[in-house]
Design a protein around this nucleic acid. Sequence first.
DNA 1: CGTATCGCTTGATTTGAATCAATCAACGGC
DNA 2: GCCGTTGATTGATTCAAATCAAGCGATACG
Lengths: 230, 230
Amino acid sequence: MRVSDNSEIRSLSLFREMADDSYDRLMRGAYVQNFPPRVDLIVEGEVSDFFHIVTEGSVELFATWNGRETTMAMVRPVGSFILAATIRNAPYLMSARTVEKSRIVLIPSSDVRAAFSTDLAFSQAIVSELATCYRNVIKSSKDLKLRNSVERLANYLLRQHCLQGGNYELRMEKRRLASYLGMTPENLSRSIKALQAYGVEVNGMAVTLTNVPDLEALAKPTPLIDTKSG
Amino acid sequence: MRVSDNSEIRSLSLFREMADDSYDRLMRGAYVQNFPPRVDLIVEGEVSDFFHIVTEGSVELFATWNGRETTMAMVRPVGSFILAATIRNAPYLMSARTVEKSRIVLIPSSDVRAAFSTDLAFSQAIVSELATCYRNVIKSSKDLKLRNSVERLANYLLRQHCLQGGNYELRMEKRRLASYLGMTPENLSRSIKALQAYGVEVNGMAVTLTNVPDLEALAKPTPLIDTKSG
DNA sequence: CGTATCGCTTGATTTGAATCAATCAACGGC
DNA sequence: GCCGTTGATTGATTCAAATCAAGCGATACG
């Protein structure tokens, strides 16, 4: 299948408004690749070769320093990553690895930069995308600096409840969730236990919230932190 | 003075490449205002009316939740803030207040959006600016999640040493610095004391680093966290 | 089928950081 | 010059979270 025929990609807000010829030119150099789980896709510090789009599976973005590692984000279909490094032609700030078997579209960074320097609609879509990403990172910074670990977990569970509805699945291993939320796996276990008093039931990957009002009273969610858009 | 005559602003990377007529049109609706210290310029949650540029003084960006408050950034001449909210026409995620007597240029948000939808050069400059901002926030997120408070302080001191050179000034109150670094004022005091063993001397606002190699050995700075660009 | 592995949980303990409390120094206003 | 306020420091204490250690349960595998 040619990448340019992939309507899933074409309908992404990033590409939706692009002129047909710019889009086709951009996708001419792109290719699709399948990866098994636990494969390193990019390593922080390397210079950006490709812009990545996840069409199947899931990818973990993480960062390391001084032997420590932390999960920064999970990217699921259809989502992209490392747009800013691509645009700036700068080194990646995060590493990426597949969590499950995944299907990734790779678009040469230079093609992305070429397209955005000629196509106004694409340039504007990138502005919009970057502004959204930026605001989302600001939100997680606020989450980290203003809340303790139980509060972060409570708000995370409510956000997922809102996105997935009713009884839902934790869509990542608890160890990864712990790292994403900025705590240890041990502490995540204890935090879950602490939230049982607020109607949180977690069995393996299955989550049930039996008392949303109480949980919200504790979590105090606000759109200025908890509504992730884009 | 007409704002459009202000070459300081014109020479910002954001406006440098703009066509003359777009720039003039954009600045026609702009105005300059002087504020005393401790004035609230914007409050988080409000919808973006103006894009702000600091030409004199300094502005603190901070965020609040549930009665807590944290300093997110300091903006100094010539720097801008709240570009993403302006672009997205979305509520501010942070509040801003003047720290000293400050001179601020205010550009109506709608004018910024109008300019960027017609001027490709401006649109590209915004892409570049947002990508930089985004990467800078990712860096501070990594700083927060991967380092403890002494390590964050040590790296902060080294970054400032690099920017300001030799013996330099802490350009903000210690209480604000503490909040920015994600710790209490008491703990900042203790962290400074702990770094005396690594050649850090702090007298009031004056900082002297007498043993940079040792401090670097402790701090382990990396461009992937500590080189803030833009 | 047993057993090795891995992730999760639980309890005990330590540690880093916040809080509480008191003092001190600098500054501005009267 | 003298308070009153504000920010910085220091010490004592508390608390949240990390670490250490052990056991559990599921899954993979020889």
